[in-house]
Design a protein around this nucleic acid. Structure first.
Length: 198
DNA sequence: TATGCGATTGCCT
DNA sequence: GGCAATCGCATAG
């Protein structure tokens, strides 16, 4: 259980404080090590909610502290925590984490993974390891088998440009990616992906 | 109704 | 290091 008002702030404000929190999914527990903030309508060209409410992103316009999932590249599921002050929308993409409990289960789900550091390194890998599917979208993360347990104390963090988001005005220039320094589970790739798309 | 592309990953060379 | 896989969503016509 957590205070829902924690998430009633902008995603950029909440994101660094989410580092170190635990995402519990049944037997599996993930310690969040890397996240990305996405803002709301008209604020963030890289956000799914930039162009307003649609069937896909409607969860982001709902209650803060709920889970927003989406399907992409025809094969991957990514998870976000809805984070929005009243009347706005936004979310925090969970990019990577460390499996701290239920490693056997997570490993079995990943199937191809070997080391613990690889189990949840990357947004799509993370959802697989935790067994999160599109059907989990909209789940209230304050309690239940799939829930979020906030960190008791703030951990140190670093910030930088987001990955995978197209450049030139696409929002990639803002330091809205946050991670725990030196953690082996932080995504190493695409430090500056040269996506040629306008 | 038709078309292009994506908040990625894993396998190829 | 480079590229294919794969399909729902958003935009254009």
């Amino acid at each position: 259980m957590f205070d829902r008002s924690f998430f009633a702030r902008t995603a950029v404000e909440v994101a660094p404080e989410l580092l170190g929190a635990h995402l519990v999914s049944g037997e599996v527990v993930l310690r969040i090590t890397e996240v990305e903030a996405y803002l709301g309508v008209g604020e963030d060209p890289g956000s799914h909610s930039f162009r307003g409410r649609t069937n896909r992103n409607q969860v982001m316009f709902g209650e803060p502290g709920h889970l927003y999932t989406y399907f992409t590249y025809g094969m991957h599921v990514c998870a976000n925590v809805v984070c929005s002050p009243a009347g706005t929308s936004g979310g925090i993409l969970l990019r990577a984490g460390e499996i701290v409990a239920g490693r056997d289960i997570a490993s079995a789900r990943r199937h191809t993974s070997r080391t613990s550091a690889d189990l949840a390194r990357g947004p799509a890998r993370l959802t697989v390891a935790l067994g999160i599917t599109l059907a989990d979208g909209g789940t209230d993360l304050s309690s239940g088998p799939l829930r979020l347990e906030l960190a008791t104390e703030a951990s140190g963090f670093e910030s930088g440009p987001r990955t995978g988001v197209s450049g030139d005005g696409g929002g990639a220039d803002y330091p809205w990616r946050f991670w725990i320094p030196g953690d082996p589970t932080v995504s190493p790739y695409k430090a500056h992906a040269p996506k040629k798309r306008a």
